[in-house]
Design a binder for these strands. Structure first.
Lengths: 229, 229
DNA sequence: CCATAATAGTGTAGTAGAAACACTAAGGAG
DNA sequence: CTCCTTAGTGTTTCTACTACACTATTATGG
């Protein structure tokens, strides 16, 4: 069946706000644009959607092409469709929100990106298009979501200490948390499994390493638990 | 500056999941399609985005054109972009979520809709395209959102009784609530203003009418209050 | 090897909010 | 004036959140 609708169409892009956590604060992954417009400026990785791929697939493809990242946590964020947001002409962008375990994969620029680099998310450089707004939206989503869903584990290595987890939450929420209360609550969720291992190469008492137990988590979700932390 | 990207583009549509509340349960506004594909089937109101209008504007325009509704609460919901979701060819749809105060406006079908009609949201008829999934997503958003934001007032007349409010929350959350606790909590929010009026034409003790005080609400939001109910 | 520095790890008491629960008040209908 | 229907109201119990300070362990450096 042919399309009966024959008006001109906006271009359709995907852009990814990729967040990581390191050295006590949130990072965002930016690429340096190799093409006009905004050539030489920092931007979120992204590109145009092809006819034969879904939006999710397009987002993963662009992310892999421009930064080398694969197998990251990815979900749709918001669709930005102001008329003048792209100087080339009408372009609608479906923004995605990605979380990566920093240190497990190296990023490498490719295709039309000159460079890919992590920046502090709170003080990123000026961005191309309306990407600053997309980034703001992503940080807001993270702040909200982390209160109800144990999503923070997507930002930590597979094994982590409770102090690392606490620092992550403090960075996301922007305020200090009480150590004893935090540990009590975190363990009470029932999705942290203590390993027999400890932190290595530290100049003080070594902390126990925990891992996030996805199986237990999945079971609890089915029972309707919610996971405020 | 010309577009450098010249691949074929998906068509871009908006669709609105319009929810209302009446007779103790949630309703959704559907239109009967006047054109192929799915001619004669029920669907969410929606249509294609024009080059000179933002997504929000497109959603309001289509809603007004097909159902006559204006000045409704409207926010973006999710963007649906599976490859095969439209038999005419690749079409991406930005879905919107609308809440209307039922009884304040009459709906009337127009343009390419043969009819516009309210249905029970939980047991709507079979829908065109992937609109059933969009409706599910909208109901989920409502259920979630209503727990943190006093959004329910968008679904009630300007003046309402506490019992009406409670029934609304019960319909959204799908469970019974305790009357005394509910009233205590609702009033404790500080955004309900008692009017001097009462319910009319009821065959029993008349209930006091309240109204939602948007000004107080705006002030409290600024102070960072949250509004679980 | 002893002292120091750094972070890990732990419990309790007080307070505030959530949940459970049943009767009296008011008004219209017959 | 009786009955039916819904409005409106407090208290107690239990649970969850908050505030708060010391001991334990390990590496380092004198």
């Amino acid at each position: 069946m042919p399309h009966t609708y024959e008006y001109p169409r906006p271009a359709l892009a995907v852009d990814c706000a990729v967040l990581g956590f390191d050295e006590g604060d949130l990072k965002v992954l930016l690429i340096k644009r190799g093409l006009e417009p905004f050539k030489g400026k920092w931007a979120l990785p992204g590109g145009f959607v092809r006819l034969d791929e879904s939006l999710d697939v397009a987002a993963r493809r662009e992310l892999a092409e421009e930064t080398g990242l694969t197998h990251v946590f990815l979900e749709q964020l918001y669709t930005f469709g102001e008329v003048k947001r792209d100087p080339r002409g009408r372009t609608v962008s479906v923004a995605y929100f990605a979380l990566v375990k920093l240190g497990e994969q190296q990023v490498q620029a490719a295709t039309d990106a000159q460079a890919a680099q992590w920046f502090s998310a709170e003080q990123a450089p000026a961005l191309a298009f309306d990407h600053a707004r997309i980034l703001e939206t992503a940080l807001g989503r993270l702040r909200n979501k982390v209160r109800y869903v144990p999503i923070g584990f997507e930002l930590l290595p597979r094994k982590f200490t409770l102090t690392q987890l606490q620092h992550l939450y403090e960075a996301i929420l922007g305020r200090a948390l009480d150590k004893r209360n935090f540990r009590k609550k975190a363990l009470a969720l029932g999705v942290l499994e203590a390993t027999k291992e400890q932190e290595q190469d530290v100049a003080h008492r070594a902390a126990r390493l925990y891992r996030f137990d996805e199986e237990t988590y999945a079971k609890l979700v089915k029972k309707g638990f919610n996971f405020e932390l």
